[in-house]
């Protein structure tokens, strides 16, 4: 991978050409906040928290660091009045959208947002529309049971037609990756509840613990070729 020389906050850095600025910053211990970026899933540019300013020649512009490719001679700064304005605005807006989210409130306060000046929403739950759940379901799990619906202020994450999804395998990866804990999932008496659907949990052949939905095991068996017999034993007992 060819290397390029750039600077972040005055610090000279060598990075892979085309590597995203956010990753370059983090690799060099320069903190940049973000909510919709995940190393395994890549970037989407939704949350706008990771904005930084880039100077090239005598032109300064604001860029999305999670999507901006490192190039020779880039001079980036991660702190400025404008950057602070955007980050504070984003966090205040998200706090107003998701007043129940402790994570957003914490992040907002840490950026100097003390209060919300808007009427707080009560219908959005804790969902900030970062899309991590959808991307996980699509590219990690490979089932695409989740998607977006609508546009603008009514946009939301949902299963098709807001009904229990036929393709969902109940794996819970979406709930696991959700940064605010919006996605509700609970296991009770050998049954997992998620996205309005119930999944029978498989009991471990050895220890008897309900460790994964049967559907998920069958899906893994089908896609990986591993035998169901082997999969029916929980990872701890294997």
């Amino acid at each position: 991978m060819p290397k390029v020389n750039l600077s972040v906050d005055g610090k000279k850095i060598q990075a892979d050409k085309g590597a995203f600025l956010l990753d370059v910053c983090r690799d060099n211990h320069i903190p940049v906040p973000s909510l919709c970026h995940n190393e395994a899933l890549g970037s989407d540019g939704r949350c706008r928290l990771c904005v930084v300013e880039v100077r090239r020649g005598n032109r300064t512009r604001m860029v999305t660091s999670c999507l901006f490719p490192a190039a020779e001679g880039v001079e980036a700064i991660t702190q400025s009045a404008n950057i602070a304005l955007v980050r504070k605005t984003v966090l205040e807006l998200l706090w107003a959208r998701c007043p129940e989210s402790d994570e957003i409130a914490r992040l907002a306060r840490s950026h100097g947002v003390s209060d919300v000046r808007y009427q707080k929403d009560n219908d959005k739950g804790k969902c900030i529309l970062c899309n991590l759940c959808i991307r996980t379901c699509e590219s990690v799990v490979g089932v695409s049971a989740l998607g977006l619906s609508g546009k603008g202020p009514v946009k939301k994450v949902t299963t098709p037609f807001d009904e229990p999804s036929e393709t969902c395998i109940g794996c819970g990866a979406c709930a696991f990756v959700c940064p605010t804990g919006h996605i509700q999932m609970w296991d009770k008496e050998g049954v997992r509840n998620i996205w309005g659907r119930k999944f029978e949990m498989a009991a471990c052949a050895k220890c008897g613990t309900h460790f994964a939905p049967l559907y998920q095991l069958e899906y893994i068996s089908k896609t990986s070729g591993a035998s169901m017999d082997r999969l029916r034993t929980c990872p701890d007992c294997r």
Partner: peptide, 14 residues
């Protein structure tokens, strides 16, 4: 408000 695609926070919420 209606025509924002809703992808990014400043436009959708702001």
């Amino acid at each position: 408000v209606e025509e924002s695609c809703g992808k990014c926070v400043p436009c959708r919420e702001g």
